[in-house]
């Protein structure tokens, strides 16, 4: 799982957004769909226009999930700004989400 901490260089070059997220999902699974919606809502609220979300569907790229040590879905990785934060679950607990992201951010 420590491999997650290695943020690909390409991730930064592709965007100028300050807040960069990677969300691992499992296709159309309920929690995965919920996580996408929750994350998007959260970003629109707190980082409007200044975020980017990479979606990794482990059903489509399981080999990548294996090497990156994904055990549960959905799972959110905040790649930027540092430090790298890992958050499990469908992100419906927005209070927890904002606490974690903002407190470490500040």
């Amino acid at each position: 799982m420590y491999k997650l901490a290695i943020v690909p260089e390409s991730a930064h070059k592709m965007t100028t957004a300050t807040h960069l997220f990677r969300l691992y999902i499992a296709g159309e699974a309920v929690n995965s769909v919920l996580a996408q919606r929750n994350l998007k809502g959260f970003c629109e609220q707190f980082y409007p226009g200044n975020y980017q979300i990479q979606l990794v569907d482990v059903l489509l790229s399981p080999e990548r999930a294996w090497t990156e040590g994904i055990t549960v879905t959905p799972m959110l990785l905040r790649l930027s700004p540092p430090p790298c934060i890992k958050i499990m679950g469908n992100l419906s607990d927005t209070q927890q989400l904002s606490n974690v992201l903002s407190s470490i951010n500040d």
Partner: peptide, 17 residues
């Protein structure tokens, strides 16, 4: 210990992998 949990999850991703 540093993992943060925010909401429900499932094993579908793990099993697919």
């Amino acid at each position: 210990p540093e993992d943060i949990w925010a909401g429900a999850f499932d094993l579908s991703g793990l099993l697919a992998m």
